[in-house]
Amino acid sequence: MTDRPDTSRKSIKTYVPAYQKDEWRSHADELDMSQSEFVRTMVQAGRKGFTSGSEEPDSPASDPGGNVLETRVLELLSTDTYSWDELLEAVSDDIESRLDETLEDLQSTNRIRYSGRHGGYTLVGDGDGD
């Protein structure tokens, strides 16, 4: 018996305003991702900013708990007033950059690769016969 997580696919339904779905579709297209992959990636990236008690590696000394999202919001608001959409865009750009850098690092160390056959990123040597 192994301690591997259940990787079977399950469906999740959510409802968002039409303009938001259009923005997500457009952004997913820019990143050459399916809409499902885009939403899955953004949710996972966003969760890292909300995990309580976990310290993030690049936490500034003044933020030892690792609440980078809180720090970023306070930095933004210290210089200007932002609407919800503007704040969301500002912090999402940072998450996208971090994800992109992380994926590049993992690929350069041959820990992951992009596989069309597997429909996206996959671990190297995950027992798929490659």
Rank of each mutant, 00 (worst) to 15 (best):
S92L: 13
D63G: 01
E101T: 13
R111Y: 05
E55C: 02
R117L: 08
T102D: 06
G49C: 03
H27D: 14
I95W: 01
T102I: 03
G127E: 07
L77F: 07
Y121N: 04
D126P: 06
D100K: 13
L103P: 00
G116C: 01
T2W: 07
S54D: 08
E23K: 08
S34A: 09
R98S: 08
T71Q: 06
S115Q: 06
L106V: 04
Q20Y: 09
D128H: 13
K13T: 15
P5L: 15
S52W: 05
Y121H: 11
R117E: 15
A28N: 10
N110S: 14
R98V: 06
E70H: 04
V39S: 00
E30S: 11
R25W: 06
G127I: 10
E30P: 00
D32G: 10
T109K: 12
L76H: 08
Q20L: 15
D3H: 11
Q44G: 03
V124N: 13
S62P: 00
R9M: 15
K48H: 06
T79A: 10
G53T: 05
T81S: 12
G66N: 03
W84G: 05
E37I: 02
G119E: 02
N67S: 05
L76V: 07
S59H: 09
R98D: 06
L103E: 10
T2M: 09
P64K: 04
K10I: 12
S8W: 00
K13F: 07
L103R: 14
L123I: 12
T102S: 11
G125N: 11
V124E: 10
S83W: 04
P17F: 02
L77H: 07
